[in-house]
Amino acid sequence: MTARSLGWSIFGTLMVAFLVAPLVLVVAFSFGENPHATLPFGEPTLKWYRKLFAGDEFWNALYNSAVITLSVGLLSAVLGTAAAFGFVALGKRLSEAGVRLVSLPVMLPPLVLALALASAFSATRIPLGFGTVVPSHLVFTQPFVILVIYARLAAFDHALFDSARDLGASRAQIFLTITLPLIAPSLIGATLLAMAVSLDDFVITFFTIGGGMTFSTLIWGMLRTSLDPSINALGTLVLAATLGLSIVALKLTNYRG
């Protein structure tokens, strides 16, 4: 009995280390003097951050990433919520098939979607830019909002709406005073999740943005061209942003599986 639980503890610890170690190292190296990704970390320093902030590239990427992430978040929230409401009203069979269908892009290898999008844009002569990146992201971020809100709405007690109507509330009033407050935490959580996914994406961004730089394409550039240690600093910033978004998101959606 104790041997078994010891085994489980060791397994759990190893798995956590396996998942967390790479991220911890990136953060640690970003604050160390040593320019190579080897131990020791060296004296603590902020010079990689200073170096990163000194270049225009970083500020460009920050602007682009911010525009894309916020637009994708906002649009995912609005479109996803509307779709979830629509699906719930369409009845169980149709809605389950529909939800599964719109969730397909999450399962597709990003490269295949990216190339399909890139060649379709080039064939239709649609210029690459924010106008192409944002909807391309939307296609794989809106499923998160749809899934979460659909599940939330499907679990609703319908007596709630009936009693609100019974008390004289109009359709719009019911939405604003009953439905929205109830789904708000889930909605904010799912939106933040969608933003984290968008910020994390590299492949689809790379093929659909054209000339512009985002955080992930900037990291890609640093990875390929030079062994610039400020990559750790940039990695840490992206990490902090996505972790922050997802932790708040998980907390708000009260994730239990």
């Binding site: 956590v16 590299f202 992930s216 998980l250």
Partner: peptide, 17 residues
Amino acid sequence: LTVLTTLFGGYLVKIYA
């Protein structure tokens, strides 16, 4: 929660690490 927070650690950053 620990497992889930590593969901979005930055795809490229992880490879690099």
